[in-house]
């Protein structure tokens, strides 16, 4: 079994102005290799990290060096949770092999993929100020 993917909640806002709570966005970072053998564990850990209220979620994938089709299912499940709460999910900083995976499965648009966390936060901010 592969080592668990590490989930870290990031509290510092890279936009360096408002605290993240004020943005109504949670920021998580993943470290490791996500595959069939640790996907269930990650889903549990992610659900724990976002708790019962978080609806807008940015996940920084800078250090996620591998993801397979079962990993994609985890992201789809978390996406569904945020959508059911009226929010959305953005994945950022994908390594090339992950970008290719999302491209080939046609799921890139569903995950609001952004180059950086700052880009994703700006998208959320623009959306909130226009609603």
């Amino acid at each position: 079994m592969s080592a668990a993917v590490l989930v870290t909640a990031v509290s510092d806002n890279p936009l360096e102005d408002n605290p993240l709570e004020q943005e109504k966005v949670s920021l998580l970072a993943l470290v490791g290799e996500l595959d069939y053998t640790n996907a269930e564990r990650l889903q549990h850990d992610l659900q724990e990290a976002i708790g019962p209220e978080v609806c807008n979620l940015v996940i920084d994938l800078t250090d996620l060096s591998f993801c397979d089709s079962t990993g994609i299912q985890v992201f789809l499940t978390i996406r569904k949770i945020t959508q059911d709460r009226g929010g959305s999910i953005a994945l950022t900083n994908l390594q090339p092999r992950l970008e290719k995976l999302f491209h080939l499965t046609g799921l890139a648009p569903a995950f609001g993929i952004q180059p950086t966390v700052i880009d994703a936060l700006k998208v959320f901010r623009a959306r909130q100020s226009s609603s």
Partner: peptide, 10 residues
Amino acid sequence: LLLAVNEAVI
């Protein structure tokens, strides 16, 4: 290749 083989093994 790594991803494809990983999928086959899954």
